[in-house]
Design a binder for these strands. Structure first.
Lengths: 362, 362
DNA sequence: ATGAAAGCGCTAACAG
DNA sequence: CTGTTAGCGCTTTCAT
């Protein structure tokens, strides 16, 4: 009966049009809800669509309109609750505005980031939100901007890139957190971050390629110097990510050193979690033997004994804000790139105390 | 110079073909990597593509081939770490097999689930993984099956639906966990779940519409009865989800009752988290005043004092398995629907003790 | 091995 | 208000 009757061919506008006895264009107008149609015809078409169980093919629609109703999100590590919540913020805002989200994970590898971007651009997403893994190689991001596809940078600003950015003031937050540690009398401080580096030694800020990581260490060092600590660089520990065992080993090594730090600032909640577990296995007390402050208010930090003081980043809001900026641009807004900095909030809990032995104060 | 020179028109096969001085078809063959092409021509086309910075339009490709290279995933609540990890498992497997993932959240609402499915089908995903929110209304899922689109049910089996399913044995796990509680001597047990119900009273299993929830309560009740407990139904607490305050209030009410439970089995880590916090604010000790077992090995359960004993569900593996089954079907496999049940593992930690006052043993 | 031409399902001018 | 006619960018017969 049908021309091409593969048993489960999805029904198209043409099918509906035929059954409603109108032209394809008219059927498309009511199904797509765009052109002017008489009420009578509209009803006929809708009835036909219902009867046939018509499901619009969004792909075809996107091909014609050039808009996919989808935004692409590339984060560094979904395993990290920080990004998990961010994605929720983005998704919530996106869905409320009628957009879908395609999620990709870079694993903090630029090559994976590039590949993800390629796929997303291939799928013709209407816009992109990216947390760049490496601020050295941003050519692929420049390409996005150049191609006029809306792009929002998340959490990690990149200089000289004309893209909207949503971040927090990492340097300031790290500075303030470190000050709390030095104010309590600590002089042997460490900053532990998940960065993979070869060798795993901190050499200088120029070695750091993730802007948020760099800003935090910068703030940490500045606060240490402000407190008169010499060579605070020696306290920066690049514990590595990825292979979990490696990170744990690095942390245990740090804590078991001859002169271990009396206070640690952890760059994210995953690192802090490892540190907390290490104190347990090494029999160290918090805050008696070690004071600890972590970035990000992860769930677990509020139920440990003692609970952990944290730099609470407004991640969910960062997500919604990023989506907001992106969608505005997708809808045609074209102001100069803006750089939103959301405020962090310090949550005082019970993990900061006095150093075990007060060091000689010069 | 060009016919249509909107300033940033993306480059197409036609553009590449023209520059390489071959036909569109030939260019498409090398760009798409399918037909036979002479090496010489192939090189010319590739050079042209590179020079023009050609990016294939996956939408157009999907339109022609009918495959989108994308799978849709609908979970109940991304906020829940359980689903977060599951999504990671799915994504990892999918990406390794060359598929992308579009994520949707039902918020445990059937209507939202239907809407999400509609969008995903509209986008012509090659297959779907769904954690059905309500086993009463599954018409939309039946439609998916009927339309021959590969579908895998996640965590929540549905009878009489010919779809692959990946789940754990919830009834058995709840039974075993409850037994540990009764074996320790507990007689006043509670099972707390995030279900919203009006009224919030447990009436009977028939009231439960999420298969995993139902199975767990069934197991809980069976174990209670096996231990000679009468009317164990009275211990089932439907604490509600969504509005966080409501859940917390329900839990504090339960714990402050005249004869509060001496042991609780929590249906998920979010509920257990609230319970743990409630014990802190009410000044109850674990396991002295209350024994607690939770489903799902959430991060925080291992760092509390004491750490919480849990039913460790192999969520990541469930995710990869689901993706595996789905992709096999997408690639043409057509065996009868299989129902995979992955084993749970009990992790003994420190949250189960003897009941404070031993009850009269009849 | 290559080219010409016909779609995929929808939207978008442009006529009537 | 409705129908006709082109495409969107790619794949896919079918010739050559």
């Amino acid at each position: 009966m049908d021309k091409k009757s593969s048993p489960f061919r999805p029904v198209t506008v043409a099918d509906v049009a035929r059954r409603a006895e109108v032209s394809k264009a008219t059927a498309a107008r009511v199904l797509g809800g765009y052109g002017p149609v008489s009420d009578e015809v509209k009803l006929r078409v809708q009835a036909a669509a219902k009867a046939l169980d018509y499901r619009p093919n969004e792909l075809a629609r996107s091909m014609s309109t050039g808009k996919s109703g989808t935004i692409g999100v590339v984060v560094g590590d979904i395993e990290n609750a920080f990004f998990g919540i961010a994605v929720r913020g983005i998704s919530d805002k996106a869905h409320r505005s009628g957009f879908n989200v395609i999620l990709a994970n870079s694993g903090e590898e630029v090559e994976a980031e590039k590949a993800a971007l390629k796929v997303l651009v291939g799928k013709r997403v209407d816009g992109l939100i990216v947390a760049p893994a490496d601020n050295r190689s941003v050519g692929h991001l420049r390409d996005i901007v150049r191609s006029r596809r809306p792009l929002v940078l998340f959490d990690r600003p990149i200089e000289d890139l004309a893209a909207d950015t949503v971040a927090t003031d990492d340097r300031e937050a790290a500075f303030a957190a470190t000050q709390r540690l030095t104010a309590a009398g600590h002089r042997r401080l460490a900053y532990v971050t998940a960065l993979n580096a070869e060798p795993p030694l901190f050499i200088g800020l120029d070695q750091l390629y993730t802007s948020s990581v760099k800003a935090r260490i910068d703030g940490f060092l500045a606060a240490c110097r402000a407190a008169g600590i010499v060579e605070p660089e020696r306290g920066v520990c690049l514990a590595g990510g990825g292979a979990e065992g490696r990170q744990r080993a690095a942390i245990e090594r740090l804590l078991s050193a001859a002169e271990p730090p009396t206070a640690i600032l952890a760059s994210d909640s995953l690192v802090a979690f490892e540190i907390f577990k290490a104190t347990q296995t090494l029999g160290l007390g918090i805050p008696a033997d070690l004071s600890l402050i972590s970035f990000y208010d992860a769930e677990w930090t509020s139920v440990t004994t003692p609970p952990i003081s944290v730099v609470d980043q407004p991640v969910y809001d960062m997500g919604t804000r990023a989506a907001e900026l992106l969608i505005a641009r997708i809808n045609g807004a074209a102001p100069p790139a803006r750089h939103d900095v959301l405020p962090n909030r310090f949550i005082e809990r019970g993990s900061v105390g006095l150093p075990r032995r007060l060091p000689a104060t010069a």
